[in-house]
Design a protein around this nucleic acid. Structure first.
Lengths: 232, 232
DNA sequence: ACAAAAGTGTTTGGAATACACCCATGC
DNA sequence: GCATGGGTGTATTCCAAACACTTTTGT
């Protein structure tokens, strides 16, 4: 019996899903890469991803492959773009649907899966040249992230439940690659009403301890309902 | 010899591309639909689209199918979203990459292709229930269009080379489904510098004739280069 | 005491909004 | 002359940006 047992009247491209996972470590934005253990591009770094099965959507595939290849689970991913250049995979015609997410690195322990020699967070400045067309995919994902964070308060999910204003500012500066005026940043964020100041201060800091804040989820859902206008 | 001559080790979803074409007719925004001539959903209205070939990208496929099924060519399309729900096509597993574009209806003559009984522009208010998951796709496309038009001066391409301020306002109001103050709309648009007033007036109007304008492409490319901030 | 980082408020300029009267044209 | 819709400017409000001094804490 032949091993190619799935037969179609017309040829079909293979379909994959890839995950571009941005991770904030409290200081920098990182990107999650796996080192390929098999050809093509064996030894090169790439985004986790793999072939879509018949019983799963591309989104489910992305989540499954992410888990299999890196150990990460429970991530909310969002569709980024579909890449379908004819020659993007040297083996054969492969179309990939790319997803992205933003997480905090400390929430996950990385475990390399079967097809991957290695899994690692890379600082954005230190990203090596990637397999396939993943350099292109990365640029597009990074731009999307920059756009998204200005209009949606996703930033808060990257910090601990209690966090400080300087931490939040660092996060935004790290993603957007710009600097904010500390006073204006504070004014604007406090004016949203989404941050509740606590009567606690950060511990174990070398100098004056900043106040802790928490994200006000109740206020956020109110804002969402009443036609929402968050913007940094 | 068997007709299913393309054999793969693992099963593959079929891959299609669909086109959501918005058309402005000077008064309303319309959407281009074809009436299906074959099962499934024979007789129902749907977006033009079809199966991706091995020698074309999904974008090229969308453009080709659009031409084959409606006669329309030379359209700049933009990727919208990829739909991969397992049951979105009753025949078998089909993943579709949706593209959208905004054109003026008067630029094109519609010609129904082989698989389509009929091609027609529908006013947004008059859209019938659609085949497959195309209702969902339409909602997503419409929201994307609303978002896009506020940040990119795509509106000008929908009018004649010479147009009037009231026409432009009508266009924006029609897409965004809101009303603008006539004076403020005028002030804001003129302040962009993208509109050059001509020494001509609209002809054959029942009342006071508005002045004609044209879009200043040179100014627009300057703006694009110098980090661009168009917003309505 | 000093070094490091946090906390805070005011002023200014520009953009968005609200708003009303006069003008041209066809009938 | 009247009905329809076009053309235009100003006052106000709000938001964004620029900007500096004082306070806390560890060493």
């Amino acid at each position: 019996m032949k091993s190619e047992k799935y037969n179609y009247k017309y040829p079909r491209p293979a379909l994959t899903a890839d995950c571009i996972i941005f991770g904030f470590d409290g200081l920098d934005i990182n990107i999650l890469l796996i080192q390929r253990g098999i050809e093509p591009f064996k030894g090169k770094w790439a985004f986790p991803g793999g072939f879509v099965r018949m019983e799963e959507s591309t989104e489910e595939c992305a989540i499954r492959e992410l888990h299999e290849e890196t150990g990460i689970k429970n991530v909310f991913i969002e569709q980024l773009y579909t890449f379908s250049d004819i020659h993007r995979d040297p083996r054969e015609r492969v179309v990939t649907v790319a997803y992205f997410a933003l997480v905090k690195t400390s929430d996950y322990k990385l475990i390399a899966g079967d097809d991957a020699k290695n899994v690692k967070w890379f600082k954005i400045k230190d990203i090596p040249s990637l397999a396939f067309d993943h350099d292109v995919i990365f640029r597009i994902a990074h731009n999307r992230l920059k756009g998204k964070i200005r209009y949606q308060p996703i930033g808060f999910e990257l910090l601990d439940e209690k966090f400080t204003m300087p931490q939040l500012q660092l996060l935004y500066e790290s993603i957007l690659e710009i600097k904010f005026d500390r006073r204006n940043f504070n004014n604007k964020l406090m004016k949203t009403g989404l941050l509740t100041p606590l009567n606690e201060k950060q511990q174990n800091v070398r100098h004056r301890a900043p106040r802790l804040l928490k994200f006000n989820k109740k206020k956020y859902s109110e804002l969402l309902n009443s036609g929402f206008n968050f913007e940094i």
